[in-house]
Amino acid sequence: MSKVEANTALILIDWQEGFDDWDHWGGNRNNPEAEKNASLLLSHWRQNNLPVFHVIHHSTLSKSPLRKEKPSGQIIQLLAPLESETLMHKRENSAFVGTHLEVSLRRLNIQKLVISGLTTNHCVSTSTRMAGNLGFDVQLVGDACATFDRIGPDGQEFKAQLIHDVCLSDLHNEFCQVVNTADII
């Protein structure tokens, strides 16, 4: 029996091949289990015939690995969408800006979202914040997200796990409930 209600959609954000180039994104990605956990969520949604939305980044920068015409811009095979699942391309940091995601969710009477993706502190955070602000009941699956090391404006290095943890703590109880895969399935 599913713990997920019928009016709950799974939103998978930026699970693209281009994120395999760790050096490009800052190195030292955290959470090596993120893809596996996202795959468990996706399998659960498919088994229960629940709505799935894949949202990927189509960068405005021609040299970016996240361009839909490049192999690196494609969704990783483990999470590749089925023909029956919605695929949207975004140009901004939010899955809701420049896409028909909100309209599609509203048409299906979706009130609850479960979100997974890359990177925790960028598109996942921005999308989660907007979803909460738009009135959706959001569960962000922390162990099905990941990020990379970052260099601050003063040159200080911040480790991926710290960034991930701080981002999740900023979102929890404000824009969403942060949960783990086991809490959902």
Rank of each mutant, 00 (worst) to 15 (best):
P65G: 12
L108Y: 02
N48A: 04
Q74D: 02
H164N: 11
L105K: 10
L171E: 08
D21V: 03
N37F: 10
P71L: 12
F19S: 00
V179N: 11
E157V: 07
H164C: 10
Q111L: 13
D137M: 10
D23T: 06
G152A: 14
I110C: 11
E69I: 02
N31W: 01
N7M: 01
H122T: 10
H89Q: 11
V178E: 14
Q156V: 06
S43P: 01
T128G: 09
C123L: 01
D137I: 07
D21P: 01
K63G: 04
R106G: 05
E35D: 03
G135N: 07
R91H: 12
L105H: 12
K36R: 09
H57M: 06
F148A: 08
G132A: 09
A182V: 09
L41A: 03
R91A: 09
L41K: 05
A95G: 15
C167A: 03
K70M: 09
R106P: 04
F158W: 15
P65R: 13
Q177Y: 14
S169P: 08
N48L: 00
T128M: 05
I75K: 03
F53M: 01
Q47W: 00
A34R: 02
L10W: 00
H24I: 05
K63F: 14
E5P: 01
N49F: 03
H57S: 07
F158N: 07
I76S: 05
V103H: 10
H172S: 15
E69R: 02
E69S: 06
G135K: 10
K70Y: 12
A146G: 08
A38P: 06
S169T: 10
D183H: 15
H44K: 06
N133V: 10
M88D: 07
K90V: 12
N37P: 08
L171D: 04
S2P: 06
A80F: 05
V138L: 11
N48Q: 02
A38D: 03
N121S: 14
T120A: 09
C145Y: 06
C123Y: 03
A38S: 12
E83F: 04
I184F: 14
H57V: 05
T147W: 13
H164E: 09
S125T: 05
V166Y: 14
F96C: 05
E33F: 08
N173F: 13
G142M: 10
P71M: 12
W25M: 02
Q16W: 02
T60P: 00
M88I: 11
W22Y: 07
S169R: 13
F136W: 08
N48G: 01
S62H: 08
W45A: 01
L113R: 06
K90I: 07
I110M: 04
A38C: 02
K70F: 13
A80W: 03
H89G: 01
D14N: 03
P32W: 05
L61G: 00
Q74M: 06
L140Q: 03
L78C: 13
A131W: 05
V166Q: 09
G152E: 15
K36W: 01
G27A: 04
Q77F: 06
Q47H: 04
